[in-house]
């Protein structure tokens, strides 16, 4: 389907809204993610024709059909690979990847880590609902150990992946975590991810109302979240709690939760978040934190600038063009050892 309305005015959410029906289940966390993305795009100063959304397979991956941009709804696990090719070929485009925990962590795990290693400037949103939704309820690589699902009636016996761990282990330069029911947080993070040069990985704690309802509630529930989530912000102390009285300090080889005002701890003792630190050690600890020993980190955990794959590729091309005597295919065909037979 095409959209031929072509206004040159300032963009709004409406420019990215489709007329057709969105076929996610009522109450699905995906709706608010879509809405937050649509709110983010107009802020980027990018022409609406320059956005491309590439997705894999799964509930989340229907996304390109629901946003008015160029898009490919591709193969299970391969969105990262397809988007890598597109962005390498066309660095001028603003390319987003929409994927889920099954799509990116299981069948697409290989492409996921290699995308990150190459640092191609893509914005990857992982809808992590910790379950296979589209195939109706089998456990995924992020499903908590012991969970009973359709394919684990006795409980899973697999340790789950944490997308943040995998991202940082693959030398990722941008990792953030957001929650589907916090649109303002999502928009802020999507904006930072889009402006970041290089691969940006955003894990969204997304709810699947049908097959894994309330899976994140233990962390994100209204009554508990203040004490179980720490909203990290660059250059700000890592403080959390309903009373803003708890914080993180580095102790030994780990992060430790401390109470401000107890045991001589004051606010100035609390670790200040440095998302731009090239050394990923603290980012790794932040990404790994789980309840109940620690709060779960939400926000931009790591954001470090480095060369992008497509940028280096363009540089090589410019250099080769400037320095080669072979300027076109006729030159190439006549290069090297040519036998002139008379």
């Amino acid at each position: 389907m095409t959209d031929n309305n072509n206004s040159t005015q300032e963009l709004t959410k409406k420019d990215f809204t489709v007329d057709s029906t969105i076929k996610w289940c009522a109450g699905c966390g995906a709706f608010s993610i879509l809405s937050s993305v649509q709110n983010t795009l107009p802020k980027l100063g990018v022409k609406k024709d320059d956005f491309v959304f590439v997705s894999g397979i799964g509930c989340s991956s229907r996304f390109p059909y629901y946003i008015k941009t160029y898009g490919i709804h591709s193969l299970h696990g391969r969105a990262t690979a397809i988007a890598s090719g597109l962005k390498s070929a066309r660095p001028d485009l603003n390319v987003w990847v929409i994927t889920g925990d099954g799509d990116s962590m299981a069948i697409g795990g290989n492409h996921f880590i290699h995308l990150i290693r190459r640092n191609i400037d893509l914005n990857v949103i992982i809808f992590n609902n910790k379950i296979y939704g589209l195939t109706k309820g089998q456990y995924s690589p992020t499903t908590p150990m012991g969970s009973k699902t359709k394919t684990s009636p006795f409980g899973t016996i697999e340790r789950p992946f944490m997308p943040g761990e995998l991202t940082l282990g693959a030398q990722g330069n941008f990792f953030a975590r957001v929650i589907d029911k916090e649109p303002r947080g999502m928009e802020d993070v999507f904006l930072q991810a889009a402006l970041h040069k290089g691969t940006s990985i955003i894990e969204v704690f997304q709810n699947c109302v049908i097959f894994n309802n309330a899976i994140h509630e233990q962390i994100t529930g209204k009554d508990v979240r203040d004490d179980r989530i720490i909203y990290v912000e660059h250059n700000k102390p890592l403080i959390f709690g309903k009373e803003r009285d708890k914080g993180l300090i580095l102790k030994g080889q780990d992060l430790e939760v401390v109470k401000i005002g107890e045991n001589g701890i004051s606010e100035s003792d609390i670790l200040v978040h440095d998302a731009n630190n090239p050394n990923p050690n603290v980012h790794y600890m932040l990404a790994r934190m789980t309840y109940p020993t620690h709060p779960v980190a939400v926000g931009v955990i790591r954001s470090v600038e480095d060369n992008t794959y497509e940028g280096l590729l363009e540089e090589q091309i410019e250099h080769a063009k400037a320095n080669s005597k072979i300027k076109n295919v006729d030159d190439l065909l006549n290069s090297g050892n040519v036998f002139n037979i008379e």
Partner: peptide, 15 residues
């Protein structure tokens, strides 16, 4: 029709 071209936004895919 190529991404970046004005007024030709569309989606293709495996379905």
């Amino acid at each position: 029709a190529l991404p970046g071209q004005e007024g030709l936004r569309h989606r293709i895919g495996g379905l």
